[in-house]
Computed example of a mutant assay.
Amino acid sequence: MTADDSYRRLDDDDYPAYTMGRAAEMLGTTQGFLRAIGEARLITPLRSQGGHRRYSRYQLRIAARARELVDQGTPVEAACRIVVLEDQLEEAQRINAEYRRTATRHPADV
């Protein structure tokens, strides 16, 4: 692996760069919270060769949103479901916007 490859990983939102301890510290939460949202299948951390959980920046953003909801009094399972639904809505809106852009450029034959 070259130095360029290593630097590219730093920009990769999906690269599992953070240990469970570091992820919990960055989010200001506990490792138990990360385990709970993993059990609820909100995020699935990758495992190191030694079997330790590793989290990506993308997963940390999702975990941070779930933590916001839990801090507001939402149960963990419900918070995880809300985050999934928010993500699905965002994706549907993106697809619709893309469809509108292409439909405007290429009007259907009538």
Score class of each variant (00 low, 15 high):
Glu39Asp: 15
Pro16Gln: 05
Arg100Trp: 01
Ala40Tyr: 01
Glu98Asn: 07
Tyr99Val: 14
Pro16Asn: 12
Leu85Asp: 03
Glu25Ile: 00
Val70Asn: 12
Gly38Gln: 01
Ile82Phe: 07
Ala66Phe: 04
Tyr55Val: 09
Val110Phe: 04
Arg47Glu: 14
His106Arg: 05
Ala36Met: 01
Ala108Gln: 08
Ala36Gln: 09
Leu85Phe: 00
Tyr18Gly: 02
Thr29Asn: 08
Glu86Gln: 14
Asp13Met: 14
Gln72Ser: 08
Pro16Tyr: 04
Gly38Lys: 02
Arg47Trp: 09
Thr74Trp: 06
Ala36Leu: 14
Ala92Asn: 08
Glu90Thr: 08
Leu27Val: 11
Arg61Thr: 11
Ile37Ala: 00
Tyr18Arg: 08
Arg9Pro: 03
Gln59Arg: 04
Thr102Gln: 03
Ala36Phe: 09
His52Leu: 06
Met1Tyr: 08
Met1His: 05
Arg35Glu: 05
Asp14Ile: 01
Ala92His: 05
Thr29Arg: 02
Gly51Leu: 02
Gly73His: 10
Met26Gly: 00
Val76Ala: 02
Arg67Val: 06
Leu89Glu: 13
Asp14Gln: 09
Arg22Trp: 12
Ala92Glu: 09
Tyr58Thr: 14
Leu89Met: 13
Gly38Leu: 06
Leu42Gly: 03
Arg47Phe: 01
Pro75Val: 11
Arg8Lys: 11
Ile82Gly: 00
Tyr58Asn: 15
Gln93Ala: 06
Arg41Phe: 09
Met1Ile: 08
Cys80Asp: 06
Gly51Cys: 09
Gln93Asp: 11
Asp87Tyr: 15
Arg22Thr: 12
Thr102Tyr: 02
Gln31Trp: 02
Gln31Pro: 03
Glu90Cys: 07
Gln31Cys: 07
Thr102Gly: 00
Asp5Gly: 11
Glu86Ser: 06
Val70Met: 10
Tyr18Glu: 01
Ala23Ser: 13
Gln59Pro: 14
Thr29Gly: 02
Tyr18Met: 05
Leu42Asp: 01
Tyr58Ile: 13
Leu46Trp: 04
Leu60Gln: 15
Tyr7Pro: 04
Ala108Glu: 12
Asp14Arg: 12
Arg47Ile: 05
Arg35Cys: 09
Tyr15Phe: 13
Gly51Arg: 09
Gly51Pro: 15
Met20Val: 15
Asp87Trp: 13
Val83Tyr: 02
Glu90Ala: 15
Glu86Lys: 07
Met1Leu: 11
His106Glu: 05
Glu98Gly: 05
Arg105Met: 06
Ala103Ile: 04
Glu98Arg: 14
Ala17Val: 06
Asp11Glu: 15
Ile82Met: 05
Leu46Arg: 10
Asp12Pro: 04
Arg8Thr: 12
Asn96Pro: 12
Met20Arg: 15
Glu91Leu: 10
Leu60Thr: 08
Gln93Lys: 11
Asp12Ala: 03
Met26Gln: 14
Arg100Ser: 06
Arg47Lys: 15
Asp12Glu: 06
Val84Leu: 10
Gln31Asn: 06
Leu69Thr: 03
Ile37Arg: 09
Arg41Met: 00
Ile95His: 04
Ala79Ile: 00
Asp13Val: 07
Leu85Met: 13
Gln88Leu: 10
Asp109Ser: 10
Gln72Tyr: 00
Thr2Val: 05
Pro75Arg: 07
Met1Cys: 11
Pro75Gly: 07
Val83His: 03
Met26Cys: 04
Pro75Thr: 03
Tyr7Ser: 12
Ala17Asn: 04
Met26Lys: 11
His106Thr: 11
Gln93Asn: 14
Glu98Pro: 07
Leu42Tyr: 03
